[in-house]
Design a protein around this nucleic acid. Structure first.
Length: 552
RNA sequence: GGGCGCGUGGCCUAGCAUGGAUAGGGCACCAGCCUUCUAAGCUGGGAGUCGCGGGUUCGAAUCCCGUCGCGCCCGCCA
């Protein structure tokens, strides 16, 4: 239920009844709830806009939906009835009617798909955090979402990893596979770039692997699987769950079928084959996309088309969360896939890279900060703070882990996806200001108030007249607009900003409006508001994948 | 060279799609607030030519053109 939408429609109806062809806009703070700027009418009516606003204000009746409709300079400002807004919003939240529109489209959302050659580093971490949050937003909006991870076990870097495992000693300390085996990968990769014959050996492995060599398949399944398990464990710490892992090697037969389907657009160059997009009527920056190497093995572009066609069998709407380096690749994939199956629509959610102050992160070069290390560091920091409070050892550990992972999630989500991030430890693990603990803290404060009170049944919503109460309620009523915006723009950060706004406003309310010490009628009404806030903030925290801590 | 993205106080960031009423936050800094619902909080303060130059408009951080800086891509890597 879109409560503000109801009021907006009422305002527009009044304008139209007054013979005005136009609609209201949200007003700036201090100028009511909606506004109608009269500038555009000025030309038409040959009157000054302020005079027009004044006339309209006299003509239009506020009715029960509005407290007043007044002219302020050239603007016609609409003030929503506080009583009606309070009652509708709080009741909607408490009966959970503010949420879940009945949309229910099936969507496959792919995120992360990091090469299984080593642990996730913080550069990569932007992908799963954005992707997972986007999936949560889509679900909250009412869609049915299946989250995918495309496991690249068929590319050159996996052949490099396998070569490293076969030819180099694996030094297994007390650590996960991803951390242990990445050293083999790094060394192998270094050797390959230095010695041509090693590169040739890796290419040979690649060929054997793709042609279905039993020994290699077994080795890959085991080792890549183990690295992947390490990645999956890191994701789980961040509260991220993948619904389906799709292994690239298993799509090779399908990829070859698709190549045949496209054969009239395929051309040969020195034994290798590429797709000529121009021939398909597609004009991009680059039109030559290679499908097969000259040794007959498939390339990522072809396999990715096959994967998207496969996803298209599961759902018509596909969303890919991708780094900015994939823009051209994605454009080509989208064009080809949508041409092959016009039922499918593929949309990207691009994000910019996370860099270190010294420059780019690279697993191959080892210039990385691993996600696991970042989480551990954050946990230590949280424990420092928690030591001064009364918690059992186990509680402390649990809360610290959730504070650390929530903070990392929020630090990523609080920046517009297409802006570059320079990674700084202190920023990623900040516990104050615009941070996860700040947001979660308001939730815990609300919980604390509710713990110390009893449930009341009859509530007089007219008692909530304080400006902070009204602001908080209106902000909550804005939720349907916010989630719609996040969905339409495929932009999780919209939701992070909303969480911050809610938290800040609750703190204002908390400061100015005592709840437990208020006189009985007011206390009951405020308790209902706090309850609604707790429910609402809880919903938002879950959408962001953050911890909902009742105590902290 | 071409394509795409980003450029807002010392640092980070919102607003740009749908142009409007004092450019909103955070960090850091300075001064305050815990015998009253959790101080991971709150209040106040200083600090801004919205990269630069044109244009459109009654009005531009927002739209258009140009320009500079940074990032990414332009591979028989993914």
């Amino acid at each position: 239920m879109d409560i503000l939408g109801i009021f907006r429609a009422e305002a527009n109806r009044r304008l139209s009844n007054a013979g005005i062809n136009g609609t209201v806009e949200p007003a700036k703070e201090g100028f009511g709830d909606f506004t109608f700027p009269c500038f555009p009418l000025a030309k038409e009516l040959r009157k000054n806009p302020a005079a027009i606003a004044k006339e309209l204000a006299e003509k239009i009746e506020p009715g029960t939906y509005f407290e007043k409709i007044e002219a302020v300079g050239p603007y016609l400002n609409f003030h929503i009835s506080t009583k009606k807004l309070n009652e509708m919003t709080i009741q909607a939240i408490l009966s959970r009617k503010l949420y879940a529109e009945p949309v229910r489209e099936k969507i496959v959302l792919e995120h992360t798909s990091a090469n299984p050659t080593g642990p996730l580093h913080v550069g990569r971490a932007r992908n799963p955090i954005i992707g997972d949050t986007m999936a949560r937003i889509l679900r909250a909006y009412g869609h049915e979402v299946e989250v995918h991870y495309f496991v690249n076990d068929a590319g050159m870097q996996v052949a490099t990893l396998l070569w490293g495992i076969k030819n180099l000693p694996t030094i297994q300390r007390h650590e996960k596979c991803d951390h242990a085996l990445v050293r083999n990968y790094q060394t192998a990769s270094k050797l390959a770039s230095e010695k041509h014959e090693i590169e040739m050996e890796i290419r040979e492995l690649m060929k054997r692997y793709e042609s279905g060599d039993e020994e290699l398949r077994k080795l890959a399944k085991e080792k890549v699987g183990c690295v992947l398990k390490g990645i999956q464990d890191s994701l789980e710490r961040l509260n991220i769950k993948i619904d389906r892992f799709v292994w690239e090697s298993e799509l090779i037969p399908k990829a070859k079928e698709i190549a045949l389907l496209l054969k009239e657009y395929v051309e040969e160059e020195e034994g290798a084959y590429y797709l000529n997009l121009k021939k398909m009527g597609i004009e991009l920056q680059k039109n030559k996309f290679f499908l097969y190497r000259s040794d007959g093995t498939t390339l990522y572009f072809l396999r990715d088309i096959a994967y998207h066609m496969y996803k298209g069998e599961l759902a018509n709407i596909l969303i890919d969360v991708l780094g900015e380096d994939h823009k051209l690749h994605f454009q080509a994939i989208k064009e080809v896939v949508e041409k092959l199956n016009p039922e499918i629509s593929v949309s990207p959610l691009f994000y910019s890279f996370v860099r270190l102050p010294e420059g780019k992160m690279s697993t191959r070069k080892g210039t990385v900060v691993y996600l696991d290390d970042l989480i551990d560091e954050g946990k230590e920091k949280a424990l420092e703070i928690l030591k001064e409070r009364n918690y059992t050892e186990q509680e402390m550990d649990e809360i610290a882990e959730r504070i650390a992972t929530s903070s990392i999630r929020f630090a990523i989500l609080n920046i517009q996806e297409e802006k570059p991030i320079v990674f700084r430890w202190e920023k990623a693990l900040s516990f104050e200001g615009e941070s996860a603990p700040f947001v979660i803290y308001t939730y815990a404060r609300a919980c604390s108030i509710l713990r110390k009170s009893e449930e009341k049944t009859s509530i007089d919503y007219t008692r909530l007249t304080h400006t902070q109460e009204r602001k908080l309620i209106k902000l909550m009523a804005q939720y349907p607009d916010i989630i719609k915006q996040a969905v339409n723009n495929l932009s999780p950060y919209v939701m992070a900003k909303y969480a911050l706004a809610l938290a800040m406003q609750f703190n204002q309310f908390y400061r100015d409006c005592p709840v437990l010490n208020a006189e009985p009628e007011l206390k009951n009404a405020r308790l209902a508001l706090v309850k609604a806030f707790k429910e609402h903030m809880g919903t938002i925290l879950k959408i962001l994948g953050l911890a909902t801590l009742e105590k902290m």
